[in-house]
């Protein structure tokens, strides 16, 4: 789970964005991109000293000006669950595909008996990440 995927998953969720200059923006995430550029709606803007406030209907924040974002605590669990579900779905889909391919694969002429079977080694470390 990369930081920017977490941000992507936070769409329509409330969040607090602090800029490098100390200003904060409280609002709901409308959209974001891979530069961390974001748009928020229903925003409460606070100045760096925290003594002045503005209500803004919608705003765009350039990613490079952001210091950090605070997102709901529940988001990480929600994303993890979503990932597990996606993985399970992928697994079952892939499983049927592989068995199908194996069926077709039997058509190719057999190599020498008892020799090393199969093509490149499957499984092992490559492939799906550890789901971080």
């Amino acid at each position: 789970m990369l930081p920017l995927s977490l941000l992507n998953a936070a769409q329509n969720k409330p969040m607090l964005v602090e800029l490098k200059n100390g200003e904060t923006f409280n609002g709901h995430l409308v959209n974001c991109d891979n530069f961390m550029n974001i748009t928020l709606r229903e925003v409460y803007q606070t100045n760096a000293d925290g003594d002045r406030f503005w209500k803004v209907k919608e705003c765009y924040i350039r990613g490079s000006t952001i210091k950090y974002l605070r997102v709901p605590d529940t988001l990480l669990d929600a994303v993890k669950e979503e990932q597990t579900r996606a993985r399970e779905a992928g697994k079952s889909a892939r499983g049927s595909h592989i068995s199908g391919a194996g069926g077709r694969g039997r058509g190719i002429p057999q190599r020498g008996r008892g020799g090393a079977r199969g093509g490149p080694i499957r499984g092992g470390g490559r492939g799906r990440g550890r789901g971080m």
Binding site: L7, I66, R70
Partner: peptide, 11 residues
Amino acid sequence: WCGLFLIRGEN
């Protein structure tokens, strides 16, 4: 207590 943070690396 601050909860879940996403910090931009530059900072």
